[in-house]
Nucleic acid binder design. Structure first.
Lengths: 104, 104
DNA sequence: CGTGTAAGGAATTCTGACACG
DNA sequence: CGTGTAAGGAATTCTGACACG
């Protein structure tokens, strides 16, 4: 529906758009920083929003950050974007997970 | 720059987005109704604006119009979209072409 | 840790043509 | 006229691995 979030871009085009190598783009996916869709055949599909995310990642990498640090930043950004109710629910789930993980 | 006009979509995705076959999409290009970019390798790249254009074409085809009729409609639409100055210039060029074609 | 690369295979796309109508 | 299809080839993408560091 939305031009911004519709996943339609191949990794080759993404590479041109962001200046990153395909290797880098796939690696950031492995590190859970980017989440492409897949075609039936298995080829990755990205959105324009993903282009912005990748350029953001590229900037952070230039600053010498590690992928897990960038992941943290993304999570905080996501929290700030959430409404109150959802945020509380999310935090509660996190506490529950921590609780049960400790008891295991 | 613009999500709407940037050519980044492959023909396979276009086919899914519009419901048209790749054969149909290529044919409309042959009839000068749609103008994809090409990658270095030669694969077609479309924009979201092209998606809208194709769906418009699909509607006209359902109405039983022929491709050259749809082409005419596109040209009129393009004229309406042009500012005065450009329009006059365009018409003048057309007259000049007609003139020289006649004298050939 | 982050990225390049060669390897082999699979998915995707391309063109020109034949077919039908 | 508009579209399907089989054909052969080329471009694109995929994964897992080795390398460097």
């Amino acid at each position: 529906m939305d031009y911004k979030t519709k996943k339609v871009i191949t990794i080759g085009v993404m590479s041109e758009l962001t200046g990153l190598s395909e290797r880098q783009i796939r690696y950031y996916e492995e590190r859970k920083l980017i989440f492409p869709d897949r075609s039936k055949g298995g080829t990755r599909k990205y959105s324009f929003e993903d282009v912005e995310t990748l350029m953001d990642i590229a900037n952070h990498m230039e600053d010498g950050l590690q992928t897990h640090e960038i992941k943290k930043i993304q999570e905080k950004r996501e929290q700030r974007r959430l409404p109150e109710a959802q945020l509380k629910e999310k935090m509660l789930r996190g506490q529950l997970n921590a609780h049960f993980n400790l008891r295991k």
